[in-house]
Design a protein around this nucleic acid. Structure first.
Lengths: 342, 342
DNA sequence: GCGATTTTTGTAAACGTTTGCTAAAATGTA
DNA sequence: TACATTTTAGCAAACGTTTACAAAAATCGC
């Protein structure tokens, strides 16, 4: 009773198993009566088509591989959700690959998924460097879509947001609020993403006539801790900033902790803007001004591109979301009175 | 060049493809020289074994299905991570199924994964009711491990924490701090989990000699909003509580918002305890006392059980994590002065 | 060197589908 | 009714592996 196959059905329904296959797949050319009979038998038998056999024969698995650095980083669940939704709506399943920010595991997953004969791979590479690109080429014919982070000159499809513009929006916003010593805190990693956000920051700075200062740019890694440390350093430095643009929300939260720990107020003394708009950012207790990436939509789009085998390179628009950490309140002058803050 | 098979290798290496298979799989009985030659050819050809074909023949796919309600709910990424890690360490891949709290999708995923011939399924069912149990039986021989939430009288393996004890710990903690009108806020859903936590709450209440009061138990759903509304209701009621135990952290955060919105202080006027210890809870801005579930470990354990085909029913221990939302500070008397709170 | 062992290799049959081709049945036409 | 045409059904060959079983080759004892 366990493993019913198309042949068992055929036997009971008194047809050849080829006919069963056709009936089950709604193929043209099987008499209505026959189809019904087959379907009924299949149902009685609790038949469950073997997707593996089907995949072997048809060379399509209706499976996508999703390779991300860390599902427990709040950015990725949203993305994964988008991918999963789009995929499942179109009859695809998603294999999850967590690389834990480990380049070797990233490579392993690429070949593992290739062995599993996924129909395509969505990857949010941890470092979109040249070597990365090279590796991706090794995948040969396997369709790949880059997500959120794409190698510099790849010809493969990707779905990213306009990171330059995002950096520009964040920085301009701060400058327009009257802050004029805006620092940048980011991950290093040789990440294209970071570079682009920094570029946007730079453009805004010079365009708005502020002076660009290397001492105001502080790089580390992508974790909260790093933001905290960067901010401590910046605040202790001679070029003490009055606003900090952190290139992701986790960093920004670290930054805020450092600021408050120093007895300074956000945003009166130091404004903070993040990037990504992770769910956390919207909590009243955090209330972080940030640049939103349409995470779920990005995931969906990537899945769609892959499934439709489209070659498009999609760049979505970031959105500035102004919250409490960057709103100048009634022209309050910063830094005169150093408040004791909760 | 694209699709190299074992036969291509065989041809070049001048052996039968059976030998190639054996060489590639390190099977006993192939001469060292032959093995090396085969391996070399395989390498030259960039051979990628076809896991689909292998799966068809061997009837094992080395794939696990993970069915969860919502990957973007902060509880699940941690769990998923645990599952993924354990699985990948043991050579298994994970298919992700997001049900979006939709019972139909849950069922669909079960049969979909069955069709894909996964070697087993880890499911965190949204409602662990009797019908749930029934459905699970329909899966027949497919190994299933319940995760975090298990049907009441199932004989299948599961990995959960002791929810009664968790509820008990949370409530006792509040009572011991001197709060004596402790309310319970939870999701309804006929969830076994909620029932058990409520049971623990009850036990603590009666055991500590406080009076159990139906008016202090408020059920809704599992989202923050619901916690907010429940708390509003409780605070407006005649039996106004001085502490609220919310059966998950999201609810607890909703509760805190309601409390503060009313101009009451946490924890001086109303203490709050949550459940789950989602990453959010640890942020200084939230600083929520809560009952921790070892989420990642639970995921790992579930994967391990599945892979080892163990029949164990594992109950892990919850841990009380005391943070700011429930710490009585210097005997401060509650509710005398209603502070204006940020 | 020769048979007896033991080790290595090859042959062929699965695994459960899909699908091109062909045969059979049904239908239409006259 | 007979023939042409159109539908339906069956046969058999894949898809790329693994694995009994049998054959061939290598090794051994003497």
């Amino acid at each position: 009773m366990a493993k019913k196959t198309i042949k068992d059905i055929a036997e009971i329904a008194n047809v050849s198993y080829a006919t069963v296959s056709r009936a089950l797949n709604d193929k043209y050319g099987v008499k209505e009566a026959t189809r019904r009979r087959v379907l009924e038998v299949a149902n009685d038998l609790q038949y469950s088509p073997n997707a593996i056999a089907r995949g072997l024969k048809s060379r399509r698995t209706y499976t996508l591989g999703l390779v991300i650095p860390d599902i427990s980083n709040p950015f990725f669940p949203e993305v994964a959700r988008g991918v999963e939704e789009e995929a499942s709506e179109r009859g695809y399943s998603v294999l999850l690959g967590n690389t834990d920010w480990n380049i070797t595991r990233e490579e392993q997953y690429l070949s593992l998924f290739a062995e599993r004969r996924v129909d395509g791979i969505i990857i949010s590479p941890m470092a979109a460097s040249a070597s990365q690109l090279q590796r991706s080429e090794r995948l040969g014919r396997l369709p790949v879509v880059f997500l959120a982070n794409a190698p510099k000159d790849t010809r493969r499809p990707y779905v990213i947001i306009d990171n330059r513009r995002g950096g520009y929006l964040a920085t301009s916003h701060l400058l327009l609020q009257g802050y004029d010593r805006v620092a940048f805190v980011g991950a290093r990693e040789g990440s294209v993403t970071v570079d682009q956000r920094l570029e946007g920051y730079r453009t805004a700075i010079t365009e708005r006539g502020a002076r660009y200062d290397d001492a105001l740019v502080c790089l580390g890694d992508f974790r909260e801790r790093s933001g905290y440390e960067a901010a401590r350093e910046l605040l202790a430095g001679r070029q003490c900033p009055d606003a900090i643009f952190a290139e992701n929300d986790l960093l920004a939260i670290g930054v805020m902790h450092a600021v408050r720990e120093r007895g300074l107020r956000v945003p009166q003394d130091v404004a903070v803007v993040g990037f990504d708009d992770i769910p956390l950012a919207a909590f009243p207790e955090i209330d972080l001004t940030t640049i939103a990436q349409p995470k779920e939509e990005m995931g969906r789009t990537a899945a769609r591109l892959l499934i439709e085998a489209a070659q498009a390179q999609v760049m979505l628009q970031p959105e500035l979301i102004v919250r409490g950490t960057s709103r100048r309140i009634n022209n309050e002058t910063p830094r005169e009175t150093v408040g004791r803050e909760l």
